[in-house]
Amino acid sequence: MPNHPVSSPNDEATIRVRVRRFDPQTNGQPPYWQDFQVPRGRVARLLDVLQYLQQEDPTIATRPHFCRDLVCNGCYVNYNGKPRMSCMTPLNARVTDITLEPLQGYRVIRDLVVDFLDKTCGNSAAEDEAGV
């Protein structure tokens, strides 16, 4: 197999990322969606998107601690409606739109951060479904 970049070398190309933002502790402010354009050349997998967003807009909350290597299970988010381990989700050239929400089945702390010690419903199979 040749050594070639997975994402397109065209740095102009972007991925549209919709993020669900919500702070349950701020009374009255309902959840809302925010859109970002993420340069394709900067992201090879979903984990890179989370890091990119966090640095572009530090008001977003994502977990800053993770293993990058498929073992901590700390990088889960809901990706286009389904639980996904973000470090194990490559973004190929066909991906143009992404929707990100906090991982289902756990209490939301803020934005994409959930409390992994606090399962909110029986659907903790969320992660098993993702095939891990």
Partner: peptide
């Protein structure tokens, strides 16, 4: 733990 217990730290690696 400053992270999520079970999911933070280098031990997993």
């Amino acid at each position: 733990a400053k992270g999520a217990p079970r999911r933070s730290g280098t031990t997993n690696l």
